[in-house]
Design a protein around this nucleic acid. Structure first.
Lengths: 130, 130
DNA sequence: TGCTTATTGATAATTATTATCAATTATATT
DNA sequence: AATATAATTGATAATAATTATCAATAAGCA
């Protein structure tokens, strides 16, 4: 059950670090440039594995495909509702989010996420251009 | 383009109100009990339409299918990572979430969502039972 | 160098949802 | 009430994103 260092896995990890919140498809495209015969399933598998092992982050947008993140520290995101692009939110993680909650009725909170939704500069510009 | 009050649409709206954060599939199952020949596409279409018109809420969980919500006021959710069930979070909506953000670099924030992730009472019990 | 087994690539399968389109039906108009 | 019209429906195909399957390959230890 020991993890092995394959060329494919390295390429996937590098792609996530080189790209900005890429989707699996975008990672696949980038990796394919370096090694055109890499399989798509291999990309998905490695993204999952790297995320599980905490080497990369995973972002679950309210809409659209999963994104991956070179940052692994706790932070929040802003999603453009027009182009779907994900940005890091300039906001410190809440110190003790569970304290914001009242009686959860026995629900054990382990984690939390915040997503800001709106328009990125480029898409906002487009809405005012007509 | 005027909206019409069909029996199917009413059944979908009623099902969302009767169920607790149901998925489209769960709404379909409930509605099918009342009218067994309702089409699945009709359920999806009406959920989208009712959500767009603000008659029901839509919840986009970090994992799993979309959920629908009889509540339409701003509130947050807790999701059980084991069973996927969605609960209302006992937390008042942030008064001015944009004030929590620093310089967004021109990103226009319009909305935000918070999801707490953890274990619901039932699933937590199961983890301690062995 | 050879062995074991994690990993791969190709592809099928799955899940959730939307698009298509002819038939139906709610509602305004006559 | 009869008619017109266009919103809506149901069936089904299509799509998108992801996971499962499985024989072949290759990483890394003995």
């Amino acid at each position: 059950m020991n993890r092995r260092n394959t060329k494919q896995r390295q390429l996937v990890a590098e792609a996530v670090r080189a790209l900005d919140h890429p989707s699996a498809e975008e990672v696949y495209a980038a990796v394919s440039r370096a090694d055109s015969c890499i399989g798509k399933a291999t990309v998905y598998r490695n993204l999952n594995l790297l995320a599980e092992q905490g080497e990369i982050g995973r972002v679950c947008p309210g809409e659209g495909a999963e994104r991956y993140d070179c940052r692994t520290d706790k932070h929040y995101h802003m999603r453009c509702r027009a182009c779907g692009k994900i940005f890091d939110a300039p906001m410190a993680p809440l110190f003790s989010p569970v304290q914001l909650l009242g009686d959860t009725g026995g629900f054990m909170v382990e984690d939390h996420n915040i997503e800001f939704v709106g328009l990125c500069p480029g898409c906002y510009k487009k809405t005012t251009e007509d």
